[in-house]
Write a protein that binds this DNA or RNA. Structure first.
Length: 229
DNA sequence: TTCTGATCATTT
DNA sequence: AAATGATCAGAA
């Protein structure tokens, strides 16, 4: 497995991402000498790792952005043939304890989403993994309106957590941001608090962007491109 | 067919 | 256990 050097500038990162647009996973995996699984059932993060390695993201599972020195978070997003997202997008773990005094401004969600390099990838399961292709990269920063939507959902969900209503939170809540389980399995437990302030054990949760929201991001980009022509 | 809740691999 | 990378798959 070959490791690429990390890009030294935003322009270099985008340039490098643009060079793999249109290429298959097989071509990229061959280039960095990474073996391709038959499917993603047992390696759900494989595509993310593939793109990370190629683009030279900071390796490992640190609680940092992928390109910390550039302030950029990398996200691959599986899309169908119409360019629509097939999955929600994980943002970060939801803080179930030690969350008093956290504001939207100081939240991990805002930090992570400050600047994102989206890499659309073909994700339909009838396409063999090796044949799926990478799309055009999109560097995104939330607009004022998008940030307002995120902030509103975040506030509503965090209020429930702080009030000890974690077990009442459902993925149906939130216009653009939702909370769902995020764990190795159902046996993984972490501490939270109930409505009486008593500690309880519950499944770890994560913040996810709903598909409708990421679809808008991708779509806005398409509109920009078509307006230039 | 869509979406929520569950799950997989790896590293620290 | 918690963080990284996410998608799977049964229920609705």
């Amino acid at each position: 497995m070959k490791i690429h050097p990390r890009p030294t500038s935003e322009a270099e990162l985008i340039q490098r991402a643009a060079t793999i647009a249109g290429y298959s996973f097989k071509a990229i995996a061959t280039h960095i000498d990474l073996t391709i699984p038959n499917d993603l059932r047992r390696e759900k993060g494989w595509v993310g790792k593939l793109i990370e390695l190629y683009l030279g993201a900071d390796a490992g599972s640190k609680a940092e952005r992928d390109f910390a020195h550039l302030g950029i978070e990398l996200k691959t997003i599986p899309i169908n043939q119409l360019g629509q997202p097939l999955e929600t997008t994980f943002v970060c773990v939801a803080p179930l304890t030690a969350n008093h005094g956290i504001t939207w401004e100081s939240s991990h969600v805002k930090y992570k989403l400050n600047k994102v390099l989206w890499i659309p990838v073909e994700g339909e399961r009838d396409i063999p993994l090796a044949e799926r292709r990478v799309g055009t990269p999109i560097l995104w920063q939330p607009s004022a309106g998008e940030e307002q939507q995120l902030k509103q959902d975040w506030q509503e969900l965090m209020d429930m957590i702080v009030l000890g209503q974690i077990e009442q939170i459902t993925a149906r809540q939130g216009e653009v941001l939702q909370i769902r389980p995020k764990a190795a399995n159902g046996k993984a437990l972490t501490t939270a608090f109930n409505e009486y302030g008593e500690p309880i054990m519950t499944r770890p949760r994560g913040f996810y962007l709903k598909k409708q929201f990421t679809a808008q991001i991708l779509n806005n980009y398409l509109n920009q491109v078509t307006q230039q022509n």
